[in-house]
Computed example of a mutant assay.
Amino acid sequence: MKDIFTMDEMITIVMAIVDNLEFKELYGLYEDQEINIPRPINEKIENLNQCEYQNFIEKMTEIAEEVMIIKSGELNELNRCHEEIIFLINKYYKVVG
């Protein structure tokens, strides 16, 4: 997926999923609401085929679940979240360098 989405776009997606997971955790309900992301990123997601979409969202959700543990809203924590997201994306997509 790194050939379709930039690292910044994937960070945006993961953080949006984190927000949805936090909402679920806070309020105990989760509607199959759309991820709140910018339109250009959403259009790229919509262009994925069913299998690509499912795999991509599953991986982004796994990353979000791992990152959610360290997110507190403070700038240093957000920077740490971004570093962790980059590390996990590279791990999941086996990117070298």
Rank of each mutant, 00 (worst) to 15 (best):
I11Q: 05
K44N: 12
G73Y: 02
K59G: 10
L75M: 03
N20S: 15
L26Y: 06
Q50S: 12
E52Q: 15
E52Y: 11
I63C: 12
K94W: 02
M7K: 07
F56Y: 13
R39I: 15
I57E: 04
Y30N: 13
Q50K: 12
I69C: 00
I17P: 00
H82D: 07
L26F: 01
I37K: 03
E34M: 04
T12D: 15
V18I: 03
M1G: 10
I37P: 08
N76P: 00
V96W: 04
P38F: 07
V18S: 03
I41C: 09
I63A: 13
E31K: 14
G73F: 02
K91L: 01
L29Q: 06
I11F: 02
L26C: 04
M68A: 11
M68S: 15
Y93L: 05
N90D: 09
E22T: 09
G28N: 02
G28S: 00
E74V: 08
Y27S: 09
T61S: 11
I4F: 03
E77D: 11
I45R: 05
I63T: 11
I37V: 15
E25M: 00
I35W: 07
R39N: 15
T6W: 03
Q33E: 09
Y53G: 09
E46Y: 06
E43L: 05
E46C: 07
L88G: 07
K24N: 14
L75F: 07
L26A: 05
E66Q: 12
R39H: 13
C51Y: 14
P38T: 14
C81H: 05
I45W: 04
I4T: 15
N79W: 06
C51S: 15
E77M: 04
E65V: 05
Y30K: 13
I70H: 02
G73P: 02
N79H: 04
E58F: 10
A64W: 04
Q50N: 11
I57S: 10
E31D: 12
N20G: 11
I41W: 09
V67N: 03
L88M: 10
I85T: 04
V96T: 14
N49R: 05
I70N: 01
K91A: 04
L48I: 00
E52S: 14
L75V: 14
Y27H: 10
E62D: 12
L29M: 08
A16R: 04
I4P: 04
N42K: 08
I69K: 06
G73Q: 00
E9D: 13
V67Q: 02
E46S: 08
G28Y: 00
N49H: 04
I13E: 01
N55W: 06
I57H: 03
M60G: 08
E9G: 14
D8F: 06
N49E: 07
K24Q: 15
I86D: 06
K44R: 12
L78Y: 08
E46Q: 11
Q54I: 10
N76Y: 04
F23Q: 09
I85M: 01
M10H: 01
Y30P: 05
A64S: 11
